[in-house]
Amino acid sequence: MISGMQSINRVTRYLSTRLVAGILLCLLPIAVRADNALLVLSDFSPSYNQVQDAIQTTAQKPPRVATLDTLTVADSRTPIILAVGSRACEQMLSRYHPDTRLLCSFLPSTAFQRMQEQLLPEQRHANISAIFIDQPLRRQIQLARLIKPEAKTLGSALGNNSRSLHTELEAGSLGQGFDLQLAYLSALDNPVELLTPVIANSDIFLVIPDSSVFNRAISKWLLYLSLRHQVPVVGFSASYTNAGATASVHSSATQIGLQTGEWLNRLYANEPLPPPSYPAYYDVSINPVAARTLKLVLPSPEALEQQLLQIEAGY
């Protein structure tokens, strides 16, 4: 009898061991795949390479790297995909598989929203997110207020790619106590004719990144008109500041890559994918010559950055 019970116990232990082993074998591929990430670059331009380098440095486990011309059909089913740049994001959205967590990075917010609406109009987007290259309008408007605290009127212009920002721009201007002077530009318009009255009736002008409006030639005219009418310009890049804008707020490719790498680590830890977001890291640049010409006494870029951080933190 005892021998029979011992046999039963041995069989029970054997079956239990096999069951646990089977469960672990089932779970093992999931654990391995959870760390399997693919980084897709739009191309190997210097900016994309800087994003890639920052991601590889920040990530706990560096992802595999591919470009659009080396992608395979199987790549679109990789559990975690980072798409750097608009072209890479568009490709991965068009091939999107529901089991994949897709993070697009280093692209304009308007481009991401447009591609999502066109390529995945009916799908829920819990597993799709983005880190934008452009700054939130609220941050730019807050910088405008810091540059010229006494200003009453904020001027700006929207084009075909940025018209959807109208409501946000109005709300942000009102929140900072500005009256908004706004021009709408299309490819057929005379930009100088439309921008001149807006600049002339503004205390400070905000440039919104929109390639359909502000190409190099129009930007030169804008900066010329602003100096002529003694109106400071708040831009969106270091090059805009160097060209004559009084100040700009902007994020580098390395800063975007750092944030992307941090988000990748959260995905490795099986945390939820954060919602689409603007850059967490940014710099302020100022043009001392433009400030002196406009008789503005400005804090240092570092002081302006700290003020923006404190405002955003609610202090």
Rank of each mutant, 00 (worst) to 15 (best):
T241E: 08
R13L: 15
L158T: 04
V51K: 06
K61N: 02
C26P: 00
S164E: 01
N265T: 11
L82K: 03
D53H: 13
L298P: 05
D53T: 13
R33L: 13
G85M: 03
I81P: 05
L68P: 04
A291V: 00
L82Y: 04
I286M: 07
D99T: 13
V231R: 07
S285C: 09
Y184L: 14
S186M: 05
L154N: 06
Q60I: 11
L120Q: 07
L267Y: 10
S76P: 00
S211T: 15
I23G: 02
L264M: 03
S42W: 00
A247Y: 03
A151G: 13
Q176I: 00
V192D: 02
H125I: 12
S248F: 03
R77T: 03
I218Q: 07
R18S: 12
P29F: 06
G175S: 10
R138N: 09
N265G: 11
P136E: 11
R292A: 14
T241A: 15
K295P: 00
V198C: 10
R114Y: 09
T78M: 02
Q230S: 14
N287P: 01
I2R: 13
A303R: 14
D210I: 03
K152E: 13
P98K: 14
Y48S: 08
H97W: 03
A217M: 14
N36L: 06
L41E: 01
N201T: 09
Y281L: 09
M1N: 12
T196W: 08
P62C: 12
L68K: 04
M115N: 15
T153K: 15
E262W: 03
V84I: 15
L182R: 06
E122G: 01
S47N: 13
G314H: 05
I286F: 02
G155S: 09
D189P: 03
S164H: 08
A144W: 06
H97F: 05
S226V: 02
V32H: 05
D283N: 12
G175D: 07
Q255W: 04
Y96D: 08
G261P: 09
K148S: 06
E302K: 12
N49F: 05
S94W: 00
I55S: 06
Q255A: 11
N270C: 07
P197T: 04
L143C: 13
L294K: 01
L39A: 10
E117G: 07
Q52P: 02
V234A: 01
P29L: 06
N160V: 12
V231M: 06
L304R: 08
I286D: 07
I131C: 04
R266M: 14
A217G: 01
R18W: 14
A66G: 05
G235N: 01
L103K: 10
V207Q: 05
N36F: 02
